[in-house]
Design a protein around this nucleic acid. Sequence first.
DNA 1: AGCACGCCGACT
DNA 2: GTCGGCGTGCTC
Length: 823
Amino acid sequence: MTVLTASVVLLNTTRAYDKKYTYIIPDGLAGRICTGCRVLVPFGGGSTVKEGFVLEIKPVDAGSLRNDAKNIEYKPIKQVLEPYSLIKGDNIELLEWMKREYICTYSDVIKCMLPPGINVKTVKTVKLTDKEFKAFKKQDLNRIVENLNCVGGECEYDELRGMCEIKGFKGCIQKLFECGAVTVEECYQQKVNAKSVKGVSLARTREEIIEALENNAVKRIQHIRVLEILLDNELVSVADIQRFAGVTSSVLDTLSKYGYICYKTIELQRNPIKDREYEKTEHLTPTAEQAAALEKLMGQLDTGTFKESLIHGITGSGKTEVYLQLISHCFDMGKRAILLVPEISLTPQMVERFVSRFGKRVAVMHSRLSLGERFDQWRLINEGKVDVVVGARSAVFAPVTHLGLVIIDEEHEGSYKSEAMPRYNAKEVARKRCFINNALLVYGSATPSVDTYYRAKNGDIDLVEMKNRPNTSELPKVIMVDMRLELENGNKTPFSYLLQEELKNNAANGQQSILFLNRRGFSTFVICRNCGYTMKCPECNIALTFHAKSDRLICHYCGFTVKNPAQCPSCGSKHIRHFGVGTQKIEEEIRNRLPESSVIRMDIDTVGYKNAHEEILSRFKNENINIMVGTQMIAKGHDFLNVTLVGVLAADSMLNTGDFRANERTFQLLTQVAGRAGRGEKAGRVIVQTYNTDEYSILAACRQDFTGFYNQEILIRERLGYPPFNNIAVITFSGRKDRRVFETAKDIGPELSEDALPDFTVLGPSRCPIPKLAGKYRWRIVIKAGDREKLIERLTLVSDKVWKKIKDEDMSMSMDINPYNML
DNA sequence: AGCACGCCGACT
DNA sequence: GTCGGCGTGCTC
């Protein structure tokens, strides 16, 4: 005799019991169960019902169940929620990999893989079985019964508990249950379900119905009309048939009772790709450069093995068309594709482009969809009804089978890194998925990340260059302005004389301008306005952050600290101070200085509500407003044909955010912002204002010289041991007692560095850039390590050891491996 | 996370 | 003697 058993992982676990558990599959459920399906299982002493997922099914000899060395009594699975896989083949392998790689639970990973709102909620109902109860000795029990009687003898468990206000409520219910006074029923509800309507169809064959009609077995005209409609249409919704046949629901009930028709559920498709019908478009004829790129990439796709490619194509070189035709080629091979884009570029125009090319073969996944819409899109993918998924970060988990291609557009974007548990990087996950599936992974960017480009230079990734714009519009002319000279000449405004002049000219000529100011963070750095000197950490070469409270400068990597200087250590000037102006201030300044120009502002404050973003952009475009002031969100997407001037107010303000990627980000952003100018026929100009005229990232951005920037940056990364030469891990501790948090962090230090390898450096603990958040103090440790595997091993070990202590003292700890944002 | 089990003090 | 407090450890 063999018994079927299932290896099950549970949802909503802590690390302590995040394991595989073996359950017996009862005979009645064997037909519905499969790997990756969702089940309800009894768990723990009280056999509370938990939601779980079947990872493996295996037959076991019945005898060996009991002879098991551990002598575990296996419990049976209680219920199979859906008779199909919610986690498809390769995602099961991915699950194991992610749990290890990101030091999280199965549960954390599963939640990434499923659409939100699918999880079951347990609803317990307490019912009074006998209203003729005798009084109980214990007053609490009587109280519960009284309360139940008041509401008609039946009540939801939680509601009842609220009504009674009894300590040990659970025990009381148990006692009442034991003496037969109440029953407790459990049912499980899901937040979202497929949207469905009730429909009817014939319950007999067409021939039988036709015969019945001809023999006058059906006499009533209402019945005949209904049956005739159903002979022409297999399945019709109840609402429709009532309308077309002009009958009421009682007619349908009668027909159903006599066995002519039966009720069925029709599952509807909510469509996020609005009801608009898009006109079908064909492939554009590729330029010579696009054709060359395509040929190379298609060749790689054809090999059917795991390969990585980077398309380094300047803005406007037509990468999207390459993506579209590559995906098309992937379809021809009978395989499917995923396209990842940054959330911000998932605009209606972007979606339209895909839908008009591929029609119903496209599914879209992003956070703007409602729960129901997301569920429907996910289900379409899971059922294999679409062939390409376009989506933001989480779309990397889309349950696509026969995956042949994953494309990551704007590969350098930080939004591919998750900042919440599990802190995964969609680029790494995509790479793993492609590896499992022998698929092609394509990265695309005008300004590739240093990490990716390094791997391309090393030959790990194939490099495809696209250097021309098909519409041959010229690259904008970039002028750098030294703000130190402006100060010397008595200009204390945030606008250089040149910029003021150009803004006036542009407005007079009816052309538009964009002023760009990066978001000023909570942390401020100190710069000398006379010589441009910035205070940096001698160890880490990172800008020191000013803390007003203590009037000190602190390094957020290693904790190095000095007193805030009154004079510039380099030139002795007293014009040294923390730096920064907000967009609001800039808007005011423009109104004062250029009163004849119209201004619109776009930043976090003004794009508060849902469509404000689109609205501001379209107002700027359509009302021909002279100047738009904004933060990085204006740097992306959207072609403004009439914008001929872009002003970057403080190119170096982002250079000193206290992050080793600051130079990379400055370069990327400046390049992108500059790309906003002169997208139309008229030539564009870019004015870059800076205090650091010799900073390589700014200089290279002005020259639009990616290679020049990269060659400098990679040297610095290597010298200081930053990625891609090392892995960085940040462990953050937080809690209400400042001292305890610090001590906990400090105690972990030795554990981390114990018999450390030569390439293992532990820095800190130091205060986090946000030292106190929501009443909790925050400290962190930064680790540099060459070997990622060993780093993960060590972190896992330490976290398992420290977890209990952390929990007992009401502190929390989080780990992030290679964070994108060090702040 | 729950829940049981177990060990201790304070009460009918 | 029993009830209920919480510390400890396991959950297929």
